[in-house]
Design a protein around this nucleic acid. Structure first.
Lengths: 205, 205
DNA sequence: AGCTGCATGTAACCTGTTACATGATTAT
DNA sequence: ATAATCATGTAACAGGTTACATGCAGCT
């Protein structure tokens, strides 16, 4: 079975839920579209790692509630003890940063500034999530015995990494600014762009 | 064209190189196997984004040195200004952390400790890379005008994020430890595991 | 004698995304 | 009116990995 399958087992070990709900829960740990989840659920059910109950609803589409079986639980437990494979990160932003010299100063500036506002938004959301979590589960959720402990520490991990990247972005912005000033002092920048530069670097005049 | 194509353009804009070298350079920004790179290079060459020169070698296999064309440069420049898509992270470790409650304490401990030693190794490598970089390019490489600026700031980004995750891991380890002690104080843990616990938590006795 | 690095390429396969398909309810 | 939420599923396609294939040089 593939990694997505184990992510599904991990979520269902916590509590039974529908494929639709799974798609939402998995977003944090292993994002997947419903078109990938539904067929896999069927396959895992055939392999007796899961069972499902058909639930009829009124005013909403009917649904299947999946639960993990003993066999599934065993397979998950075995998998958890194995050392994880290396993480894979695919982030277009990194390619653009890598090529930052190739672009002009304004674009470089914009690239970083956009990332900053994006990160600020996401850190706010993440902080909200954490305070909601604390409100819902209180002290008991923060203990390593809790079912929710894993989720809690992952939220914190995400927040920390986002904040660190934010701080890095600001460092980069500073470097871009410094280079501009150096260029000016070294006289590399022509008199023509003098006014523009002054306006950019000393906006309070 | 797909994102890998732009990563290739970004690398070739810096300097011409072979597919083999590309595979190594790209590891930092967009990892890809050679089996994915070679066919794409052929396709991009047909689309006139690249040209190549056949270089015969002695004692080594012959190679193709690819360079970016004016058309390729233009396409890259256009792409850079567009806002990047959301990053995708796939890390089995996160699934295992999410399921940490499901595993026993020893496994939980091991999961985090292994990550710590892994991160420590990688931060050392990263620091080495950065000092090598500084040795090679000096102050000029650290300026935003430099071709190598992008790579330099990315190295720093990776290092910062690794260090932050390391610090998070230690925080988690602490939480796991605290819970163990709490359990002990609350008398949840049986007398049977008393010796084992003492030996684990107070190793200096 | 066997492994690693250099260097390119193809084929089969698995993983993941986009688009198509349906349909009631509720909020804007 | 129109969009979003709930809910499941399939088909076609794009992206990415593993394995197969070749071959010399240098190191252990």
């Amino acid at each position: 079975m593939n990694t997505l399958g184990y992510a599904i087992l991990g979520a269902l070990a916590r509590q039974p839920c529908s494929g639709y709900e799974l798609a939402q829960y998995l977003e944090v740990i292993w994002p997947a579209k419903h078109s990938q989840i539904y067929p896999l659920l069927t396959k895992m059910e055939q392999n007796e790692l899961l069972i499902f109950e058909y639930v009829e609803q009124f005013g909403k589409p009917n649904k299947k509630i999946f639960s993990i079986t003993e066999k599934g639980r065993k397979q998950l437990k075995d998998w958890i003890t194995k050392t994880p494979t290396h993480p894979i990160i695919r982030d277009e932003f990194l390619i653009k940063v890598y090529s930052i010299w190739f672009s002009d100063k304004e674009n470089a500036h914009k690239l970083i500034k956009d990332r900053i506002s994006n990160l600020e938004q996401r850190t706010n959301l993440q902080e909200e999530k954490i305070s909601n979590f604390k409100g819902e589960y209180g002290e008991s959720g923060l203990s390593a015995n809790s079912k929710h402990f894993g989720r809690y520490i992952l939220y914190n991990r995400t927040l920390r990494l986002q904040k660190e990247e934010l701080s890095w972005c600001k460092w980069v912005l500073d470097l871009l600014q410094t280079t501009k000033l150096n260029n000016f002092l070294l006289g590399i920048i022509s008199i023509k762009s003098f006014h523009k530069l002054i306006l950019e670097t000393i906006p309070f005049i």
